[in-house]
Amino acid sequence: MPRNEYQSQLADLRADVLDMSETVAERLEMALEALETGDADLAQQVIDGDDEINQQYLDLEKQCTDLIALQQPVAGDLRFIAASFKIITDLERIADLATNLGEYATDGETNIFPEIDIQELGDVTLEMLADAMAAYAEDDSQQCYAVDERDDHLDDLCEIASDTVVRELIESDELDADEDIETFMEDVSRFLLTIRDIERIGDHSVNIAARALYMIDNNDELIY
């Protein structure tokens, strides 16, 4: 295969990975909005759209494996393809977590702790994902480190949010014998799962940044 055609395939792979990331970010944003507004139709769009992202993943997986099998890339090209494969795996998992958030939005009450700003937590993950993908797109190693550092802030916010839920449960005097305790506790469980899944989205964004750093500088410092 002529060199220019091979380079074009590598460029197409990068563009397609970035396209997948944009779709995933859009679905995550929709899921967060559904949680905030209680929009069941919007949440269902996220849930129904998961198959599309799964297909994108499979198509990109084939692009990666074909490039490795047919072109036998070495050095920087091999790191780029391997990083792209790992990144689409993390993107697919972020999409799965966004689907979880959509399901939480349709399954029960989502605003039982109004003092906790779920949208704020979600916005941090959206920024982390955007910066991680920018690092991949622009070969920017500094952005990789910035994403990793921001994850500590997200972890702190999620820990504070979870602790607030527990404290509110301990101190609450609003429940009475006539209230459906089981339903309320199911809502509480979903709320805690929401916080956990948002934190996991941040972890996957760090994984993306780590693979981008490895791709750019052959540096595995952030991996694991």
Rank of each mutant, 00 (worst) to 15 (best):
V147T: 02
D140Q: 08
A82W: 10
D19V: 10
V165D: 01
K62F: 09
K62D: 10
E103D: 12
E5Y: 15
N218V: 10
A82D: 15
T65I: 11
P114T: 04
D152G: 08
T37A: 11
M133I: 03
E179W: 13
E127Q: 13
S8I: 14
L129V: 02
R200T: 01
I195F: 06
A95P: 04
V147M: 06
I47D: 14
A43M: 00
E168M: 12
V188G: 09
V147G: 05
D131I: 02
D123E: 15
A15P: 05
I94E: 06
S162G: 09
G122M: 15
A105H: 08
E33R: 10
T183F: 11
G38L: 15
Y224P: 06
A40N: 04
G122R: 12
Y136F: 15
Q45N: 15
E29I: 09
Y6K: 04
I160P: 06
I160G: 09
M215W: 06
R27N: 02
S189A: 13
I170V: 13
I47G: 09
A212K: 02
I81G: 11
N4V: 14
V206E: 14
I94M: 13
Q72M: 02
D152E: 15
I201W: 03
M128A: 07
G76K: 11
A95M: 06
S172Q: 13
Y104D: 03
M1C: 00
Q72Y: 03
D51I: 08
A83G: 04
A210K: 06
L58N: 13
D173R: 04
V24W: 00
A130H: 13
L28S: 11
D90Q: 01
E115S: 13
A161T: 03
V165E: 01
M133N: 05
V74Y: 13
R190A: 02
A130W: 12
D39N: 05
D19I: 10
S172M: 12
E174N: 09
V188K: 05
I198W: 03
Y214Q: 00
L169Y: 06
A161H: 03
D90S: 01
Q119M: 14
D50T: 09
I88M: 06
R150V: 11
A43W: 00
M133A: 07
